[in-house]
Amino acid sequence: MRHQIPLIITFVAGITMIVQYFVPHEPFAALSQQFRIWFLIIATFAMILGVGNIIKIHVERISRARPGWGYSVILLAGLATTAISGIGWGIQPGTIFFYLFWNLLIPLGSTMFALLAFFITSAAYRAFRARTAEATLLLAAAIIVMLSRVPVGTYLWDRFPIVGNWIMDYPNTAGQRAIMIGIALGVVSASLRIILGIERTYMGAGK
């Protein structure tokens, strides 16, 4: 019951989604549409599970007065204020939720990612050494693309934007496309393994 039923559920759900593509008629069309909605609902509960886990971990940290427990209070206060205001009074402009989104989440998020500009640059300085032909290609492509996107690049050489765009459109597209096709083939084989019950690691260990 703990293993067989999940395998049957996976098989039925997976096969239904595949069959509806080749047989877009009833009952498969309606069933797959229904499954998609159910998928969204259950995935939302998975997100709630994640939030529940955060709460559990930080409540435990506070109750045991572990080092940095004060930060956990801030985290939980931020979580509760945003979630309660959003669920209780809506998320449209003019609400408390929107105020928090605009004045807390946006500056925090964009500054956090902006901070990566410094670390990415220092990491590149240490890692990007033109030791081999491959490393030189990587370095050259990165520099050209960066210079093609800023005014100083055009100031140095007016054809930098053209070369940068060509790199993005052809060699970059070729590399990305090879990766995409490779991923797609990998996803197809992994999906088949999951649907047929060969791959079971998603169920986790234990009985």
């Binding site: 801030i74 939980l76 931020g78 509760a80 945003t82 939720f97 928090l100 925090l108 956090m112």
Partner: peptide
């Protein structure tokens, strides 16, 4: 940030 993101 973590708290408000989760709440958001």
């Amino acid at each position: 940030f973590v708290g408000t993101s989760a709440g958001y």
